[in-house]
Design a protein around this nucleic acid. Structure first.
Lengths: 204, 204
DNA sequence: AAAAAATTTAACCAAACAGTCAAACTTTTT
DNA sequence: AAAAAGTTTGACTGTTTGGTTAAATTTTTT
């Protein structure tokens, strides 16, 4: 998680930017070197190959993102409180790294299963063996805090409502001139809209 | 929209598969030729370059998809009926081409604006100068059919609820074993869940 | 301050890749 | 049936790109 030298840090930072923007196949080692302000051979000195550099970048990105994402699951207490905390934390975690979710989705669809592997590892380290949202929903329904709902559908809805604006960012900002999905005002409105919509759909 | 020869058809079909799966930078001309069962030089005989072949494939894919997508906007009448028709048609259009939405989102984020250009062209040909959903929502609110809501937020929610399962398909099917987002039963459940959630959120 | 180790670079190399071309083959026109 | 036009192919070319190497430079150790 640390960097063994300043050069290494510059490389990973530059590689992150280029890989996230262009994808694994679209990224060029020369472009990464240029961005880091170093000679291309240094990339191979610190990280043997493009594959390994990519792996390093991918793991670091997923590491921090999954960490923040899981924190969004932690809110205990009444379901309404969990909802508020989850929506706010989840949207903030995504908005902090525009482009990362698009990148992850695309790379997974390319056949890599590193993300899911890392996600499951992180879940396990917190004592879960799967994403805990369906269980949280089931428990709340049993306690009568919300009306009975298909937990999987509700989880998909909840995540989709939070994530979609950022995945579709380039389209939305083009067809809705003036909109900026990372603008604090939009984030506030979005959180409010998601909370109201979901709560109206489950409140007793 | 037609094909001038059988070979051309085979090329576009093979190219569609490879480009959608690997993206523009990940696709290989040789892989397309192999899949079409022809010599690589034929690709250049029919379409001058990789760029042009890609453009052709992209336009054809977007053409049919946008066509079906816009049909989902056509439902008039009461808002509840529009909702039902939109959700069903939109989800069906996406489910018919798994992978296309992921591909479009990724390619747009690579800087291409062909999709938005084509979308606006199609909208214009139907007499719209933007996506009509916010106006439909506003009109319904004014008629008192639904309670007042932020039209842009609701549109984003509605589209996100429909599209997200397919964008996140590789993740969802991995973390929820047994789930298949193109399975007819899931599609039915999804439509029901989206309709209930959105309607509960807007009904007077 | 000399030797050793680590870092950085410019100049290469080899493989992968998009694109070309002349010749062979097929279909259409005369 | 001969000529012309259109189609298809195998072998080739030039470029891009990931990766290597030997030498130069800087840092650390003695």
């Amino acid at each position: 998680m640390k960097y063994s030298s300043e050069t290494e840090r510059k490389i990973v930072e530059a590689a992150s930017t280029v890989f996230l923007e262009k994808g694994k196949t679209g990224a060029r080692m020369q472009a990464i070197a240029d961005r880091a302000g170093i000679n291309k051979a240094l990339l191979h000195y610190y990280f043997r190959s493009k594959d390994r550099l990519y792996q390093e970048v991918f793991e670091r990105q997923v590491e921090t993102f999954v960490g923040e994402m899981l924190r969004a699951f932690e809110g205990g207490g009444p379901f309404r409180a969990f909802l508020e905390s989850f929506i706010s934390n989840y949207i903030d975690a995504i908005a902090r790294r525009p482009g990362l979710v698009r990148f992850i989705v695309w790379e997974i669809s390319q056949g890599g299963n590193n993300f899911v592997k890392l996600l499951k590892m992180h879940l396990a380290s917190k004592g879960f063996n799967s994403i805990p949202i369906p269980d949280i929903i089931r428990a709340a329904a049993e306690r009568g805090e919300i009306r009975p709902t298909d937990p999987v559908q509700l989880m998909i809805s909840l995540m989709g409502l939070c994530v979609y604006p950022f995945i579709a960012q380039p389209i939305l900002e083009n067809i809705l001139p003036g909109l900026s999905v990372t603008d604090p005002q939009f984030l506030k409105q979005r959180k409010q809209a998601v909370l109201e919509l979901v709560w109206d759909g489950v409140k007793p």
